[in-house]
Each structure stands twice: as C-alpha cells, then as structure tokens.
Nucleic acid binder design. Structure first.
Lengths: 240, 240
DNA sequence: CGATTTGTTGATCTTACTCAATAATCGTGG
DNA sequence: CCACGATTATTGAGTAAGATCAACAAATCG
C-alpha cells in the first residue's frame, strides 16, 4: 500500500486533507498524525462546537456540513467572523490566548474532527513537514482575513456579494464539488452580517443579479450562470 | 549573566522581543535565535521593504519607525492592510504562498531586522518554545485581523476611529511608551483608507472629538484627554 | 396545518461620500 | 533661513448608497 493511497482514505474519513500534506509525509508519519485525530463529533443544526471564552484545547476540521463562527459585541449583537466548509479548519485564532475568541455553531447537520493542539505541537516538533504545513495553514488564514478586510473597507454591496459568491465557488471547486451550482448553507442574515450589509440589501442584490442573468437564485440554491459577469460586477480578475 | 538579561539586551538591539519568548528560552537558545537575525536594515520615508509578488524569504521585525503594508487593487487603488510599530512583525501572510501578498513601505525613517524564515523553520524544529511562540504569533495576527473585520463590518465612523486610537494607545503602552500622548506616524489618508472611510470623515471626527474634549489633536500629535470617553464613543469596554 | 422564522419588495431617511474651496504643513532650493 | 510650490489637512454644501421601517410572501418546523 503506498502512502498516497493511505492518505486519501483517511482524508475521506475525517477531513484531514487540510491538516496533512499529500505526498510529503511518509506512510508511518501519516499514521501518527491520523492517530491524534478524534473522529466523528456529530452536530445538529444550531449545536455549539465551542463558545467564546472556552479554554482552547483543539482545532477542529469540518468533515461534513458547515460551521459559522461569530462573536457577540457589547450591545449583544452577533458578528459573523467566518464560515467553514468541509476540509476547513477552525479555532486557529485561539492558539495565542488559549481561549476561544469566537463561538462556533453548526449551520446544518455537520460532523467535525477534533485535533488536540498539544498533540500537534508535539508531533510537529518531530515531523518537519507537519510543522511547515501548520505554518502555512495559519498563514493562509491570515491572508484570507486580509482579503476580507479589503472587501469590507472599500467595496460596494454588489462587489462584496459577488466576491463572496466567487470565493464560495472556488472553495467548493477545491473540494471537487460543482463550482457553479451549490447550496448556501447560511441564512441571508448571516451573509449580510458577515459582509457588513443589511439583510434587505443582500436580498435586493440577489434579485438584481438574477434579473441580469448572472445568477439563478432559488432560496439557498445558487447557480452561477456567468462566471465572467460575476467577476465583472465584483471587479475581480477571473481565475483560470 | 542570566538569560533574562541577555534577552533584554538583544531586544533593545533588534526588536526581537516579539519573536522571542522572555524567560522561556535558555541563554544558549537565545543566542541561536539571535544569530539568525540580520540586523539593521535602515529605511528612509517612502522606501519599500518588499513588494507585492516578491518571493518570500524572511519575516521582518520593526526595530524603530513604522511601516505600512498595502495592496493595489485592479483599478490601481491602494488598500492599506496594516500598520506596524516597533516590536511588531510583518510578512506572515506570505508563508503560505511563498510570495508577498502586500507591499511594505516605511512611513518614516525606520529600521527593521530581517529574519530568514527558513532559519526559523529549522530552529523551531529543535527549540520547542520557539515553535510554540511562532504558532502564537501567527494566531495573534489572525485574531487581530478578525477584530478589524468586526470594526469594518458594522461600526460607525466614530467607533472605528475611537477603536483605532485605543488600539494604537495599547500598542504604544506595550512598548513602554506613553499610551495617552503619541504621534500618529501615518497620514490621514492612510487612516481613512485602513478604516474604510473618506479622508474628510477622519478629519471631521478628529475635530469633533477635540471639541468634545476627548482628544487634543495637533496635526499628527495626539493626546487622549479621556480614555473613558474615547471608549464610550467606540462602544468599547475600557481595558484595565 | 397553523405558527414562526426567513426572505423579498417598497418608501423614506441617514450616514458618510464626493466635490470644492481654503488653510496648514512639508520639503526643496536659492 | 526664508520663499515657493506641492502635498496634506480642514471645513462646507450637496448627493448617493445603503440602512431602517413596514408590509407581505415564502419556507420551515413542530
């Protein structure tokens, strides 16, 4: 059995494809990494994975479903920080303070893998490629957050929604799912909140993009009819 | 000579206080970390430290002065991503892609230390506490970016500026500088851009906060007259 | 199947942007 | 060191993008 095969099997099982680096770990190392992962934490819609202020012990990899993270400000308003799809990792913001700075909640029936961070620290001291990969993972999250920053600082409502949909599309594509037809796991209110808009604005722009034959919107089902037009409204260069 | 002393000396010399963990590295380890740092890259106002797209080789620690990072969008507009003060580290967003995703430019005469990332990778495999600290550094940046996200998504112009000044104040305090009187190293246009506002709005709000006896503003010199009022306008709980 | 939540559409209002003019500051060279 | 132009900051007036308020429609759930 070659190591790539082993890797793929464990991937499908626990969403570790983000944590592991395909082709760079030996079969034995992969087994080690595999052994620290606690599988199958099943969550129902609206279940909490962790709460703001909880002691930080583990990162979580989404295996199926989807999770949103948010924090509550002084007036009690929720502020959505991020959406996590299968294969993505949450909790990295908590490593520094050792407390979760956000609350994580399932947007639909989901399952996640728990990866005790202490084990990662120990393992990544010995497995160079795991350490390298952890640095990359954390760096990728920084870059992602900075892209969102740019979106929120200057872009119009239409640009924000366009870029948001393009981003989702690319993330689904990475997971080998359709990049043109997908189901939004989050409510309009969550999209609005995440993008710093009012729900009504999100609704209006979905309608507008549908009228312009850029999208087909049926509730949470989205079809991107023209990737080019969607990039145009977002003022984004089209990815190849 | 005890290790703490050694640490403090090297700190003042090269701004490594952020990269090292006081009291957790042995004197020998500290010397090792010290040895990978290239000191004293002096920069004049408007000099570039690196450019968007450059190959990533090193992180940089600001030793004196201040650096801004920004990226240029498709229409050629600058979008400010962050401001870096003495003791802070830039470049962490580039680890994943191995290319700088932003351009870094000195806002005043500055000097930085260059820390080759490959050396960090090698060293942090052997020095457990350095690895732990690197994870924390990256995590802290994620958390910081997410806080800014919240600011940009929902807050009013006044709240943004209030929170921005409070944040600067705390960062100066951490560096043992006055938290109530300091010089803004960046232009109004940079503040506006960073906070997603128009220059005129920043100017007006500075005037308004001055009239309300919250601030004293004299060009780039800022004095916070009432920390409490500043927290109030930002709807922030006052830090102790 | 009715109740509650979620999404859409319309009318009005507000915050912050744009445009414009002026004032202050900075940087450079005489 | 001062004078000059250029950049940067302030202030005012008008405007627009998106928020809020309100009513209704559709989807979800027990």
């Amino acid at each position: 059995m070659n190591s790539t095969k082993t890797f793929n099997v464990s991937c499908q099982q626990c969403g570790l494809n983000e944590l592991c680096i395909p082709h760079t770990l030996t079969s034995g190392e992969m087994d080690e990494v595999d052994s620290i992962v606690k599988r199958g934490k099943p969550l129902q819609r609206s279940d909490y994975l962790f709460n703001e202020g909880d002691a930080f012990k583990s990162l979580f990899a989404v295996r199926s479903g989807s999770i949103k993270s948010f924090s509550i400000d002084d007036e009690g308003n929720e502020q959505v920080i991020g959406f996590y799809l299968p294969g993505e990792i949450l909790g990295m913001d908590a490593i520094d303070s050792q407390r979760h700075t956000t609350t994580a909640r399932a947007m639909e029936t989901s399952s996640v893998c728990e990866i005790p961070f202490e084990s990662i620290e120990i393992l990544s001291s010995n497995i160079r490629n795991l350490q390298v990969h952890m640095y990359k993972l954390l760096s990728r999250e920084i870059h992602f957050d900075q892209e969102l920053q740019m979106l929120l600082a200057k872009k119009t409502a239409e640009e924000r929604i366009g870029a948001f949909l393009m981003n989702l599309s690319q993330r689904y594509e990475q997971r080998k799912l359709s990049s043109t037809r997908f189901r939004l796991p989050m409510a309009r209110a969550d999209i609005a909140n995440y993008l710093g808009l009012a729900v009504e604005t999100v609704s209006r722009i979905f309608t507008r993009l549908q009228t312009a034959d850029v999208l087909k919107v049926e509730g949470k089902e989205i079809e991107i009819l023209s990737r080019k037009s969607l990039c145009d409204v977002s003022h984004l260069k089209e990815p190849e």
